[in-house]
Simulated scan of single mutants.
Amino acid sequence: MIQINVWEDEEQKIKKFLVKGHAGYGEEGWDIVCSAVSALTIATLNGLTEYVSIPLDIEIEDGYVYCAITTKMSKLQTIQSQAILQTMKLAFENIVDEYGEYVKMDKMKI
Score class of each variant (00 low, 15 high):
L90E: 14
A23K: 05
Q12D: 08
E98A: 05
E8Y: 00
K20P: 09
K75A: 14
Q80S: 14
I79D: 10
T87Y: 10
E10Y: 02
C34T: 14
H22A: 08
D106R: 08
Y102I: 07
V33S: 04
V37S: 05
A23D: 02
S53I: 12
Y66W: 10
K104A: 15
K109P: 00
E8A: 01
V103F: 02
S38E: 13
G100A: 09
L76K: 15
A83Y: 01
G100T: 14
A39C: 06
K109Y: 06
T41Q: 11
Y102Q: 08
K16S: 04
F17Y: 13
T41I: 10
W7I: 07
A83T: 15
Q12L: 01
A23I: 13
V33I: 14
S74M: 12
S38F: 03
S53K: 09
E50C: 06
Y66T: 02
K15T: 09
K109R: 12
V96G: 07
S81F: 05
I32H: 00
Q82M: 08
I4T: 12
E11M: 01
S74A: 11
A36F: 09
Y64L: 14
S53T: 09
K109L: 15
M1K: 02
W30I: 03
T49H: 12
K109H: 07
T44H: 04
I42K: 01
Q77D: 10
S35P: 03
A68F: 04
I42N: 13
L85E: 04
Y25E: 04
V65R: 06
H22E: 04
D31G: 00
T41P: 03
A68M: 11
M73V: 10
K16E: 01
P55H: 04
V6S: 01
V65D: 11
K72A: 09
C34S: 15
T71L: 07
E10L: 04
G100D: 06
K13S: 10
I60K: 06
I110R: 04
G47A: 02
E28L: 10
A23Q: 09
S74T: 15
S53D: 11
T78I: 07
Q3K: 08
K104N: 15
I95K: 05
W7C: 10
K13W: 01
L40V: 07
G63I: 09
T44L: 14
M105G: 07
S81G: 13
D57S: 15
K89C: 12
E8P: 00
M73G: 00
I58T: 13
D62C: 04
I14F: 01
D62L: 12
I79F: 14
M108D: 02
M108W: 00
T49Y: 05
V52W: 09
T49L: 07
K16Q: 06
Y64A: 06
W30G: 03
L18Y: 02
I79H: 15
Q77A: 13
V65H: 09
E61L: 12
E98P: 03
V19K: 02
N46Q: 14
I54P: 00
K13D: 12
V65K: 05
K16D: 00
L56I: 15
Y66A: 07
I4H: 02
L90T: 15
K20H: 03
